[in-house]
Design a binder for these strands. Structure first.
Length: 197
DNA sequence: TGCAAACCATAAC
DNA sequence: GTTATGGTTTGCA
């Protein structure tokens, strides 16, 4: 018997969060100023062959997930080892999402640099960011253009700027992190924000 | 700056 | 199979 997928939606400080999960895994997540938009994002990422239901009383796992989402939204540093339902996604998509998840808080990486680390091209990476089922858990807001301008964001560029602003940690120099056996350069988020005034 | 061409996985036909 | 679509990048005027 297929496991029933639970869907939750909740407002926090004027922002709507929604996510779908089983008792162990997140299937999709989203946030937006509009409840309708965020709910639609989540529902659209539930596999069509699985039954789901909208719940109001969060299960234990859902409670954890909710506070996790809020923490991310507030720019807090939370560990990324959260169980996401990746296996139904195409292999390359999984690779890109995993690489993105490794960008540390306080830093950004470019579409092109991620492409170089995992293979493929920058536009393919951009397409996957645009379709990210796990916003903001997989921090696609930390992916920007190679010239440190913003690039795009599903929830609107204003939301991207706000999130990045909350993630400022005052780092001053780039560093390399290991991603699928290669080196991925990440840059302080201030590189992006300093030109925006 | 601005524009054209190359780039590349996906989804939609 | 084939085509269309981008949250891009690079080179060149």
């Amino acid at each position: 018997m297929k496991q029933l997928i639970e869907v939750y939606t909740q407002n926090f400080n004027g922002v709507w969060f929604a996510f779908a999960c089983t008792q162990q895994q997140i299937i999709a997540s989203s946030f937006d100023s509009s409840q309708q938009v965020t709910l639609r994002n989540v529902l659209g990422n539930i596999p069509f062959d699985l039954p789901f239901q909208v719940f109001h009383e969060p299960s234990a796992f859902a409670k954890i997930t909710l506070s996790f989402l809020k923490s991310i939204y507030e720019g807090q540093n939370v560990s990324v080892n959260f169980s996401l339902a990746l296996t139904r996604l195409p292999a390359y998509t999984q690779k890109v999402l995993k690489a993105t998840a490794q960008i540390p808080l306080g830093y950004v990486a470019s579409y092109g640099s991620i492409a170089k680390a995992v293979g493929g091209g920058p536009r393919a990476v951009g397409n996957i960011m645009a379709a990210n089922p796990f916003a903001p858990i997989v921090p696609c807001h930390r992916v920007v253009k190679s010239d440190f301008t913003l690039g795009g964001y599903g929830g609107g560029l204003r939301a991207k700027v706000e999130l990045l602003g909350k993630e400022k940690r005052g780092f001053s120099s780039p560093k390399g992190i290991a991603v699928s056996g290669r080196q991925l350069m990440v840059f302080p988020v201030e590189y992006v924000l300093r030109d925006l005034d």
